[in-house]
Design a protein around this nucleic acid. Structure first.
Length: 423
RNA sequence: GGGCAGGUGGCCGAGUGGUUGAAGGCGCCAGUCUCGAAAACUGGUAUGGGUGCAAGCCCAUCGAGGGUUCGAAUCCCUCCCUGCCCGCCA
């Protein structure tokens, strides 16, 4: 959601920023509706003030056993005008809201310009992709081990589902535990086990609604299955006025994520890169406005730290204007090296949403001793996508000699000391 | 799912149609007192919006949304949530 007062003050800045995302000028329509709405509101409030005053007068006259008939008739006459104004005001407000709620966040000054993902800018590269002749992908490795079963998953659930068995199922679980423990014991995050089905309001707050409902699964009684635990985690502060001293709040959760993947037909159809259901360890930070930029760097480093501990090669890119998501001001994607694809693939996305989500969910903070509240800033990042991390481990730790997977040292405590997964 | 009882300001809690945005208490903030603190006393203490250079004035909000009325925290309807009992159930 956007600050109408700020749009009034400098519409040019908003249009210029939205133009970086390829949008045509939006503020003329917004300002015209805003002016209309405020005019209606002012007139309506004048009538309400008159009504209130007269009603008080009637109360006094009646208390004194007087005759208030004339005054009562006078107020009754206001009602038609008020009803009409109210309806117009509500309709204008709705039209305004329809525009505002579907406009993306303003981009940060440091987000580079560019039309699509080919213009993202690499900011660092860690580790060296291994050179080898034979680099089967995770699907081939997993199926050969008998521990990754797409056919059975398809029989039960259809496309874009995977069934893991034995060592790989355990490896997935180990990865999640390892990530959670690292974030809670080393990075200062508090572990949360949140609801995975949410109401409209929550999905609206983080920006999935109203524009992206097609990407979500919905239950027959109206719940949305979370596409990421960013939704419940960030919404923990919805409708609150926090004390600034209580910030930052850092939350992490390990949850399934559900995505319809509408519009992704034909993309990543092999293997478990793109699924309707996957596990993710998420990080969410709630900060004071002045702290979010530093927190963004910190959060990205926390995600990178997981890859470093797993000794997986990766690079970090900053998304360009055309690739930055709806709610984000600035986003770092972390891409892990996948030998099976001979490419870097996204394994984490860390976004600073500024006050965009906070405005939608009315999450504010008040500095101690001050009267005024400010919207908090919200950030979210994967730390990491567990399914894709599993893939990365499989492909990078694959041993062509026996078709097995060496267990990364950091995970061995979570695997009962196991050093290698073999058939 | 059935039944009963409830949802009021940061918290507790009054309030069943008329100057109630809301008594009282607690908490918090400031002041007085004190070497300092506590206690006591005095004052202040919601959010959003409109309007105005400003001081201010005005509007809305007592779970949410409708309705009745000149006037609703108070009456009616629908929904949501919480607690307890019963049923069912991991």
């Amino acid at each position: 959601m956007h600050d109408l007062k700020a749009i009034r003050d400098e519409p040019g800045a908003y249009d210029a920023n939205w133009a970086r995302r390829g949008l045509s000028p939006q503020t003329p329509a917004i300002l015209s509706l805003d002016e209309k709405r405020r005019g209606l509101q002012t007139r309506l409030q004048e009538l309400q003030a008159r009504r209130n005053e007269a009603s008080k007068e009637i109360g006094k006259i009646k208390a004194a056993k007087g005759d208030a008939e004339a005054l009562m008739a006078q107020v009754a006459a206001l009602k038609d005008d008020m009803a009409a104004l109210e309806a117009q005001e509500a309709e204008t407000a709705r039209a305004l809201d329809d525009i505002l709620s579907t406009l993306p966040n303003l981009l940060d000054d440091t987000t580079p310009d560019g039309p699509d993902e080919t213009h993202n800018v690499e900011v660092r590269r860690v580790g060296t992709p291994p050179r080898r002749n034979e680099s089967p992908d995770h699907a081939a490795i997993g199926e050969a081990l008998g521990m990754m079963d797409f056919e059975t998953a398809a029989k039960i659930s259809g496309a874009r589902f995977t069934l893991l068995r034995g060592g790989l199922a355990r490896l997935e679980r180990a990865l999640a535990q390892f990530m959670l423990d690292t974030h809670t014991t080393e990075h200062g995050y508090t572990e949360v086990s949140p609801p995975l089905m949410v109401k409209d309001d929550a999905a609206y707050g983080t920006g999935q609604l109203p524009k992206f409902s097609e990407d979500l699964f919905r239950t027959t009684n109206g719940y949305w299955l979370v596409p990421t635990s960013e939704v419940p985690l960030t919404n923990t502060v919805a409708d609150m006025i926090l004390e600034s001293e209580a910030l930052p709040i850092r939350l992490t959760a390990h949850t399934p994520c559900f995505r319809s993947e509408a519009g992704a037909a034909g993309k990543d159809t092999r293997g478990m890169i793109r699924q309707h259901q996957f596990y993710k360890v998420e990080m969410v930070s709630i900060t004071r406005p002045e702290d979010s930029a530093a927190e963004h760097e910190r959060m990205t480093a926390c995600a990178e730290n997981i890859l470093k501990k797993l000794d997986l090669p990766f690079r970090t890119v900053v998304l360009c204007s055309g690739d930055t998501g709806f709610g984000a001001r600035k986003t770092y994607d972390i891409e892990v090296w996948l030998p099976g694809q001979n490419a870097y693939r996204e394994i984490s996305s860390c976004s600073n949403c500024g006050d965009f989500q906070a405005r939608r969910m009315k999450a504010r903070a008040r500095p101690k001793g001050e009267k005024d509240t400010r919207f908090v800033h919200t950030l979210n990042g994967s730390g990491l996508a567990v399914g894709r991390t599993l893939i990365a481990v499989m492909e990078n730790y694959y041993d062509p000699a026996d078709g097995g997977i060496v267990v990364p040292a950091a995970l061995r405590p979570y695997m009962g000391g196991l050093e290698k997964i073999t058939k």
